[in-house]
């Protein structure tokens, strides 16, 4: 589905959008969270081997809380993008319908 008005292409392909969304979710959000989790595990392992006590626990809690906060923000950001993309696709589809109707 693509609109071509006065030589200007407002082209889009709903399948491309879905593929891009899936890729962004997997490659940007999923990989980022996985990478942070793995790196945080290594850091925790080090701390557990070198530092004990209440300060060490608080340090690990702070690090974990920050990582979780960032991971959650990444997921929330993706949800906004997903909804935005669908809104754009819907607007384009209804614009397409309107143009076709106009020619009937």
């Amino acid at each position: 589905m693509a609109l071509n008005i006065e030589g200007a292409t407002i082209g889009f392909d709903a399948n491309n959008v879905q593929t891009a969304l899936n890729n962004l979710n997997t490659k940007c959000i999923g990989d980022a969270i996985r990478k942070m989790n793995d790196s945080m595990s290594e850091l925790r392992e080090y701390v557990d081997s070198a530092w004990v006590g209440a300060s060490a626990e608080q340090f690990k809690n702070n690090m974990e809380a920050d990582k979780n906060r960032i991971s959650q923000a990444l997921q929330d950001t993706y949800e906004v993008l997903e909804s935005e993309m669908y809104q754009i696709v819907d607007e384009m589809a209804s614009a397409d319908d309107e143009l076709v109707k106009g020619r009937e």
Binding site: G53, A54, S55, A56, E57, Q58, F59, N62, M63, D66
Partner: peptide, 8 residues
Amino acid sequence: IWSGGFTG
């Protein structure tokens, strides 16, 4: 991150 201090 250092709010718990450095005890130990």
